[in-house]
Amino acid sequence: MPHVAFATSADSADLTDDDRQLAAALRERDVTIDPAVWSDESVDWVDYDAVLVRSCWDYHSRIGEFEDWVTAVAAETTLWNTPSTICWNSHKFYLRDLAGRGIETVPTTYVSGADSRSLEAILDANDWREAVVKPAVSAGTDQIWRTDRARADSHQERFESLRDHEDILVQQFVPEISDGEWSLVFADGAYTHGVLNRPEAGDFRILDHFGGRRPVESPPPDVQEAAGAVVAAATDELGEVPLYARVDGLEVDGTFTLFELDLVQPSLGFDRHPAAAGVLADAVVERLDEL
Rank of each mutant, 00 (worst) to 15 (best):
V132A: 06
D248G: 00
A227L: 02
T109W: 11
T85Y: 03
T77I: 14
A125I: 14
I177W: 04
V46S: 15
E251V: 14
V185F: 04
F186Y: 12
Q224Y: 01
A234K: 00
W45D: 12
T16W: 08
V174K: 03
L280T: 10
G269H: 03
H273M: 03
A121C: 12
T32S: 13
Y244W: 03
L268W: 01
T235M: 01
Y94A: 07
V133W: 07
T141F: 02
G228Q: 02
P107G: 07
R205D: 05
A139F: 11
W45I: 15
L258Q: 04
S218V: 07
W57P: 08
V285Y: 07
V264T: 13
L250Y: 02
V51G: 08
D142V: 11
G249F: 00
T105N: 10
G249W: 00
S154H: 09
A275P: 00
P221W: 04
A150S: 14
R101M: 12
R214F: 01
L184H: 00
V241L: 01
C87H: 11
S118C: 11
L268F: 07
Q265V: 12
D248I: 01
P199L: 04
V137E: 14
S9K: 02
S9H: 09
E260S: 02
V170K: 03
K92G: 04
F186Q: 03
F173H: 13
S267V: 06
A24G: 10
F93E: 10
A10N: 05
L238N: 05
E76L: 14
P215M: 02
D18A: 05
T141Y: 02
S112T: 15
N126F: 12
T257V: 11
E157T: 15
G239E: 03
L52A: 10
L196P: 00
P221G: 04
L184E: 00
L258R: 01
S161L: 11
S55T: 15
D44N: 14
A190S: 07
T82N: 10
D253V: 05
G278D: 10
L238W: 00
V264D: 06
R149L: 05
E286P: 02
L207Y: 11
P175F: 05
G212L: 01
H193E: 01
A13C: 10
G194Y: 02
H273R: 05
S218I: 04
A276M: 02
H165Q: 15
S42K: 13
R54W: 07
A152N: 03
A227N: 03
E290Y: 00
L263T: 09
D164N: 14
D58K: 09
A72W: 13
